[in-house]
Every structure is written in C-alpha cells, then in structure tokens.
C-alpha cells in the first residue's frame, strides 16, 4: 500500500532517450497494424488465462460474495467517495507545503562554502532521518505524541498532524528530486550568471532553479502519485478518510467490497496523473534528442 520505500529513480527520467524512440511509432503502416494485432491477441490470451484460473479456483464463490458484492458496492460507494474529499484536502494542502519546504531544503543543501555548513548539515540530517523512519511511525509519533504533550492551545483534531506528517515525510524525498535537478544544471550556467554580476542567490533564482524545476517535473509528479496514495496512512491516527471509511463499512457489513470500491477510486484518480507523467517524460526525451542533434 505504501510508496514510502523511496522516490522513483530520477536519473532514469533525466536521461536522454534513444533518438529512435519517437520515430518508431511512425513506422510503416503495415508493421504498425501487425504489431497492434499481436499486442491485442497476446493481451486477450494472458488475461483470459488469468480470469479462467481465478473463476475456477476452489474458493472463488466465497471471494466473489465477499469482494464483488454489487449491493454492498452500491450502498457503500457514496460514503466512500464522500470520505475521499478528505484525502483530496490532505493531498492538496500537503502538496503545496511539500513543494515549498523541499525546495528550501534542496537550496540549503546546494549552498557552497563553510558559512552555510550549518544549513547544509541540518538539511542533510533532515533528509536522512525522514527517509529512514517508516512513514507510519512519523504519523503515529506526531499524531499521538504531540497532542499527548497536553500543551495548552494545541489542536486535538488529527487532521493538522496528518498534514504535517505527510509534509515532513515527503519533503525529504522531494528535496532529493529538486537536488538532482539543481545538480543537473551545468556549472557553466552559474559561471555565466555570476560573470554578469548576479549574486549567488540571483543566479539560483533566475538561472539555475527555473532550469532545474523544469527538468524534475516528471519525477515530482511521480512522488505526488505516491503521496496521493499515502494519504490513507493517516487513517491510523483517526482521520476518517477514504480507507478508514471503507474499513468502517466493511466491519458493519462483514464484506470486503468497500475496499474494492476504494481501490477503484484510487485507480480513477491516479491513472490520469500517471499518463500525464509519461507524456511529460517522453516529451522531455524528444526535446533532449532534438537538441542533441
């Protein structure tokens, strides 16, 4: 369920693809028709076999009743979709905070010279710790620990802790993505900017970061796909979001169909984002191949 194992390898996404890639799709029509046909046939065969194995399995009858129950599905679906609005809020707020915090961390880590050592050091420690500790633990520690301190005026509602925990966890990964982007901008760009009299910060702001951010948009989107899914982890501290809601329904109905409904919701929102990422990646590859002429 969790993506917290780490961000997808960004080096692959920044790499220049083979220039032949985009051309192949435009190959001779007869070859294209034939390969489409082969793809369709092999897909049908593979899935046919899988379905056949599943429905002929000895326990299929019970699984069908407890996972694919149409009545339960119809009854549970509105509640589940309604609960998903909380995931969307979590995701939307955390995403903005992550973009800002991660950028600050990445910039701190890229500042050269002994003066900035403390900032570099803190940012490094931060990334190390939050990538090391399993996300669920961060959520538990914040969600139960901070309110448990009993400090006056501190919120007892778990929602803010959920947002903070997701932000802290994901900023560590996203800062690495930004950093890869910053380091992929050739030092001659900074030299050119500085030689014109721009300060180090101006060079970063106007020359390096715009190029870096453009290059890391696809891996950033990938991390946000992970974040979207990981919003279910905050159900552990009592936020009644989509996963907790499906759990409630499951326990009431003694039926697992609500989980399937939840899965469907995630598929519906994630696939468009995944496709968008793919499109951006292949557009970048084409561009890189074109400029490497």
């Amino acid at each position: 369920m969790s993506h917290l194992g780490g961000p997808l390898d960004t080096s692959g996404m920044l790499a220049v693809g083979p220039p032949g890639g985009p051309l192949r799709a435009r190959g001779r029509p007869r070859t294209a028709v034939r390969s489409t046909l082969v793809a369709v046939v092999s897909t049908v065969v593979v899935f046919g076999i899988l379905v056949w194995i599943t429905v002929n399995a000895p326990g299929w009858a019970e699984v069908q009743v407890s996972f694919f129950n149409a009545t339960v599905f119809t009854n549970a679906f509105p509640d589940i979709v309604a609960a998903f609005s909380l995931n969307i809020q979590l995701f939307a707020i955390a995403e903005v905070l992550i973009l800002v915090l991660a950028l600050a961390l990445a910039v701190f880590r890229s500042l050269p010279g002994p003066v900035f050592f403390p900032l570099r050091f803190l940012a490094t420690i931060y990334a190390d710790i939050f990538r090391a500790v399993p996300g669920v633990l961060v959520i538990y520690i914040l969600g139960f620990g901070i309110p448990g301190l009993g400090l006056p005026g501190i919120p007892t509602d778990p929602f803010p802790y959920a947002v903070i925990a997701l932000t802290l966890i994901y900023s560590a990964y996203v800062s690495e993505v930004y950093r890869a982007g910053i380091e992929s901008v050739h030092p001659s760009q900074e030299a050119a900017a500085r030689s014109l009299g721009l300060s180090r910060l101006q060079a970063l702001r106007y020359v390096i970061l715009p190029q870096a951010v453009r290059r890391v948009i696809p891996p950033l989107l990938n991390d946000f796909i992970g974040l979207q899914k990981d919003t279910v982890l905050v159900s552990y501290i009592g936020v009644v979001e989509i996963f907790r809601q499906s759990q409630i329904t499951q326990q009431a109905k003694f039926n697992y169909t609500p989980y399937m409904a939840t899965a469907l919701v995630f598929i519906a929102v994630t696939i468009p984002l995944a496709r968008l990422t793919d499109i951006l990646v292949s557009r970048d590859r084409r561009r890189a191949a074109a400029s490497a002429r």
């Binding site: 001659s188 050119a192 014109l196 721009l198 020359v207 715009p210």
Partner: peptide, 26 residues
C-alpha cells in the same frame, strides 16, 4: 564583475530564456 564582461567558448546562454531576456536579465 559588472564592469568586466566575459564570453565563453561554449556561449553559455540561458536556454530557458529568449534572446531578449538573456540580454536584459543582468
């Protein structure tokens, strides 16, 4: 550095900016 211009072998133009923005940035 403002008073000393330098031009490099590899041009080092800013690829994300138009010609005009390259020239007016500094």
């Amino acid at each position: 550095r403002r008073r000393i211009g330098i031009v490099f072998q590899a041009f080092n133009l800013f690829p994300h900016m138009s010609v005009l923005d390259n020239v007016t940035l500094a």
